[in-house]
């Protein structure tokens, strides 16, 4: 499915789930997302991680509603508990099956996002692993001059921001010298299209989940 359509679907589902309280619909969405992830050969390790991360906040919600709210509504406690998992699994169905490149290309070609944003963000995304190693480098540089930069030291982040500013300027120069001109038309090697099938999936899935959301408890 087209990446930006998939993102739209995920956002719409998450939004609707925020305003409803059907436990069965939540469970259905979680199972459907898990099946979708398994079809896309997501590793079991990643899925276990998905199960673990929202556990504490979900438990917190459950306990608050069930033990400390005036009504002690068990059904609503479960709704909130599963809602956390809906967000995570539905979100993962997008993030674990699409690349930033696919999304950027789709936003650029299908929704006319200025290419400056599309490629600027992409370049920044490709820099992420380097930011992590840059922080380690800064701390090492500090130690070698006898300065201990702790994780909360403003000097560490001041330097990190300087590094990032410098990178962004170099990247901008590099993009221009690689032929990029703002607002100039570009050709597309990978033609990304929004097909009728994409619209079909978007509407079909949205309609399908209305039934359990509104009819089942």
């Amino acid at each position: 499915m087209n990446a930006s359509m998939k993102l739209l679907l995920v956002l719409l589902i998450s939004l609707e789930v925020s305003f409803t309280h059907s436990l069965s619909a939540n469970l259905l969405l979680i199972s459907a997302s898990l099946i979708y992830l398994l079809i896309h050969r997501t590793s079991l390790k990643a899925i276990m991680f998905l199960a673990l991360v929202p556990f504490l906040p979900a438990l917190g919600l459950f306990v608050t509603i069930y033990y400390f709210s005036p009504g002690q509504d068990l059904h609503f406690a479960w709704v909130l508990f599963t809602r956390m998992y809906v967000y995570v699994t539905v979100g993962a169905s997008f993030t674990l099956t699409s690349t930033p490149l696919e999304l950027a290309l789709s936003l650029e070609q299908n929704w006319h996002l200025p290419s400056k944003f599309a490629y600027g963000t992409l370049a920044a995304f490709n820099m992420l692993p380097k930011i992590k190693s840059a922080i380690v480098t800064i701390r090492t540089a500090g130690l070698m001059r006898g300065v201990v930069l702790s994780w909360w030291s403003p000097q560490l982040y001041f330097k990190a921001i300087l590094v990032a500013l410098n990178w962004s300027e170099n990247l901008a120069q590099a993009m221009i010298s690689h032929g990029f001109v703002e607002d100039q038309p570009r050709t597309f090697y990978r033609q990304i299209k929004v097909t009728g099938l994409d619209y079909g999936f978007l509407l079909g899935i949205l309609v399908m989940i209305q039934l359990p959301i509104w009819l089942l408890p």
Binding site: N126, N170, L171, A174, H178
Partner: peptide, 10 residues
Amino acid sequence: FQNPNQQFTM
């Protein structure tokens, strides 16, 4: 450029 690290977007 001189610095090989910051000349690619992709």
